[in-house]
Nucleic acid binder design. Structure first.
Length: 199
DNA sequence: AGCGGGATTTTCT
DNA sequence: GAAAATCCCGCTT
């Protein structure tokens, strides 16, 4: 089993996050295959006041402190799941939130799971989890194993990557740890005016 | 296109 | 007991 391709996940979350852009997520559910390309990520590490791991290892954040390349799933607002890829060495609480993906394969079944079509299927962290049927049961899952695998692709060029503050938080919201593929329609929180102007 | 509010439960104070 | 790494709907412009 070649683990070398996952080595960059041992980097700090803020360095691993932009390198996850363009990587593929392969999901098997109900005998069907879903594939998506990561187009938006956010970094959260232990020194970051906005991170779940900031106040130390707790039952919820335990997975964040485990080995890189596993999945950290959390439940929020009483109805949504969001998922992260654990980064950093064991004992360090850091992870990268997957905020949006672009459908590559199995778009029809994603639409069925999600109840929406087009960019509304996967242009947000909880939307992606719904479209890929990711829930509590996959917390701690090893992303080298089915039914959910990360397929690493070579890094994008710097001029294809946009950087901004993170979305939906009030603490440390100006820390520029959100990374996205420029002009990709599946990136979340893109104002319609911006997209029309730049399409 | 931009806003404000509600849903609903886990987690920590 | 309050806030939360969100989403959706409805109202206003």
């Amino acid at each position: 089993m070649d683990r070398a391709i996952f080595d960059f996940l041992n980097l700090p979350a803020s360095e691993a996050a932009p390198r996850l852009l363009g990587c593929l997520v392969e999901r098997e559910v109900d005998g069907r295959k879903l594939v998506g390309r990561i187009v938006e990520t956010e970094a959260y590490d232990q020194t970051d006041a906005a991170s779940h791991s900031y106040r130390g290892r707790t039952p919820r954040t335990d997975i964040m402190f485990g080995p890189a390349g596993h999945l950290y799933v959390y439940y929020t607002y009483g109805m949504h799941y969001c998922c992260n890829i654990v980064t950093g060495n064991e004992g360090v609480g850091s992870a990268v939130l997957i905020r949006a993906i672009e459908p590559v394969e199995g778009e029809e079944y994603m639409a069925e799971l999600r109840g929406k079509t087009g960019i509304e299927m996967t242009n947000g962290p909880a939307k992606f989890c719904q479209a890929f049927a990711i829930g509590r049961r996959l917390n701690g899952h090893d992303l080298q194993q089915p039914p959910l695998k990360l397929v690493v692709k070579s890094s994008l060029k710097d001029d294809q990557i946009g950087i901004s503050g993170r979305i939906g938080i009030s603490t440390a919201k100006d820390t520029p740890w959100r990374f996205f593929i420029i002009e990709n329609p599946y990136v979340s929180h893109v104002k319609m005016a911006w997209w029309k102007k730049n399409k």
